[in-house]
Design a protein around this nucleic acid. Structure first.
Lengths: 241, 241
DNA sequence: TTAATCTAGTTGTCTATACCAGTATAGATA
DNA sequence: TATCTATACTGGTATAGACAACTAGATTAA
C-alpha cells in the first residue's frame, strides 16, 4: 500500500490511494474517510504527512473537511473540475466524439500590435499563424485561428498542426501549459464562416478568444475560435472566491 | 505586523500581508519574496507556519514556487482568477457598470422533474421561481429565471429578489456559496426575449444554464439566463489540470 | 424530563527539527 | 579558459508532539 522506501513521496501515495477509492466508487460523495490519526497510525507515519495529502485533495475538490466532524468525499463537482483547460482534441474525446482537423493555412507572420500585446512579444516578432477547421465525427465544429511565437515553438510544423498542438507542446517540447484566459461571446455567422462550418449565414455561433499561458507565465498562444451554436456548448465549473 | 496573540491565525496574517504587498503593487509579477527561513527568523515563528501561508497563496495563484531558487509573484492571472463565480450584481460592478433589476415575476411553484433533478429535491417540492430583467446602467442586459428550494431560502421575498440574491444568501442567511456548473450556448433571440431585452428578433444571445452549490454540497439554485450578445461577453480563467 | 456538563472523538494551528534535492556562485585546478 | 568542487542558499518532505476549537453522544444534576 504505502511504500516508505519508494522515491514517490508518502503524502502523494496517500493522495493517490484516496483518489483511486473515489474514482472507483468505493468512496462516494458524502462518505467520511478515516481520520488523520487513523491514517497516521495505520501507516506509522506522521499526522502532518497525512494532512498534506488531504490538503491537496481538498484543494483539488475531491474532499471536504469539517472541523470536529471529519473529512468527507465532495460531491460530483469533481468530475467537472477536472476538465479545466483542454485542447479541442481532448474536449471532443471527453464528449465521446472523434476529433479531426483540416489545416487551412500554416504560415509565419510578423506580429501586429494586437498580437504583440496579447502574446507579450515585440511588434514584428515572428509568429506562426495556423488556421484550421476542427471537426467532430467528421463534421465541422469550429473554425480556429491560432497565433504562437516562433521563438517558443520553433519546431512546429504543418504536420503537427494537423493534430493536437497541445500534445506536441507538452510531450515533444516538454512545456507545461498552466492556464488560459477566455472570452466568450455570442455572435452570428458571416459569409466565410458559414461556408466553412456548413451552417446558414446568420446562424448563432460562439466566438471564443483565448490566451494560454505556460507555467512560467509565458504566453503560449492567442486563439480566435468560432464554434457552431447548434453543435457546441461550453461547460465550465466556477468557484466562488 | 504579525500579532502572535491575535485570534487570527499567524499563517493567515502572513498570507494577508503578502497579498496586500502584491495588491498594492509593492510586489510585482516576477519579484521574489523573502525565503521561508527569512520569514520564520524575522517573525520568530516556525518555518512550517510560513509554508502554510505560502502554500495557500500558491494554491490561490498569487505565488509560484521554484525549488532551489525561491518563491515568486505570479503573473497577472491573479486578477482574473479572483473573479470566479460572481452574482450579476458583482459582475456588473466589476465591469464598471451600475447594476439594477426589474422583477418580472416571483412565485412559488412545484418542482417539475427537470427542476427536481437539477436541484436535488423531490418532484413536487416547493421552489421559488424568480424572473428578472437584469440591467446595466439602466439598459437591459439579461433575462434571468431562477429556481431555488423554498426549504433552503424560505425568507426570500420579492424585495430581496429586486436586488442581489447572492448577497442575501451569504449575508442574511449565512450560507456559503461554493461553486457553480455552467453551460454556455450561443443562440438567437426569440420574440419574447427580443422584446424584453430590446434587441432584434434573431439577434445573437448567450444562453447560460447554471447550477450553484453551497459549500456543503447542497444545490442552491438552477438558473436560466439569456444575455445580449452585443453587450456581454463571458470572461473566464481556466487551469490546465 | 430537560438542561448542563463531561468525554471522546474530530480537524486546526503551531512548534522544532532533520534531512533531501535543486540552484547559483566562488574558488581551485587542469 | 573550461571544468570541477565546495559552499551557501533555496524549496520539499517528514517527524513527533502539543494545544485549541468544534462536534456529538453519554452522563449527571436539577
Amino acid at each position: 500500500m504505502i511504500n516508505k522506501h519508494s522515491p514517490v513521496p508518502i503524502y502523494y501515495q496517500i493522495e493517490q490511494s484516496i483518489k483511486n477509492l473515489i474514482d472507483k466508487g468505493d468512496l462516494k460523495p458524502g462518505d467520511m474517510i478515516p481520520s488523520e490519526r487513523e491514517y497516521a497510525e495505520n501507516y506509522q507515519i506522521s499526522r502532518m504527512t497525512v494532512r498534506q495529502a488531504i490538503n491537496n485533495l481538498v484543494n483539488d475538490g475531491y474532499l471536504i473537511r469539517q472541523k470536529g466532524k471529519g473529512t468527507f468525499v465532495a460531491s460530483q463537482k469533481i468530475e467537472q473540475k477536472l476538465l479545466g483547460l483542454t485542447s479541442f482534441t481532448e474536449d471532443m474525446k471527453a464528449r465521446g466524439h472523434v476529433p479531426s482537423t483540416l489545416l487551412l493555412d500554416f504560415k509565419k507572420i510578423d506580429a501586429t500590435n494586437e498580437l504583440a500585446v496579447n502574446l507579450n512579444v515585440q511588434m514584428g516578432d515572428a509568429l506562426y499563424e495556423i488556421k484550421r477547421i476542427r471537426l467532430a465525427d467528421g463534421f465541422p465544429m469550429a473554425l480556429e485561428t491560432n497565433y504562437m511565437p516562433v521563438q517558443l515553438v520553433h519546431h512546429l510544423t504543418e504536420e503537427v498542426a494537423k493534430g493536437s498542438i497541445y500534445q506536441f507542446v507538452e510531450q515533444r517540447l516538454g512545456l507545461e501549459i498552466d492556464y488560459a484566459t477566455q472570452e466568450l461571446e455570442s455572435s452570428v455567422a458571416r459569409e466565410t464562416e458559414s461556408e466553412l462550418l456548413n451552417i446558414a449565414k446568420g446562424a448563432p455561433v460562439l466566438h471564443i478568444k483565448r490566451r494560454t499561458f505556460l507555467k512560467n507565465g509565458c504566453p503560449l498562444e492567442f486563439v480566435h475560435s468560432i464554434y457552431r451554436g447548434d453543435r457546441y456548448k461550453f461547460v465550465i465549473d466556477m468557484h466562488r472566491s
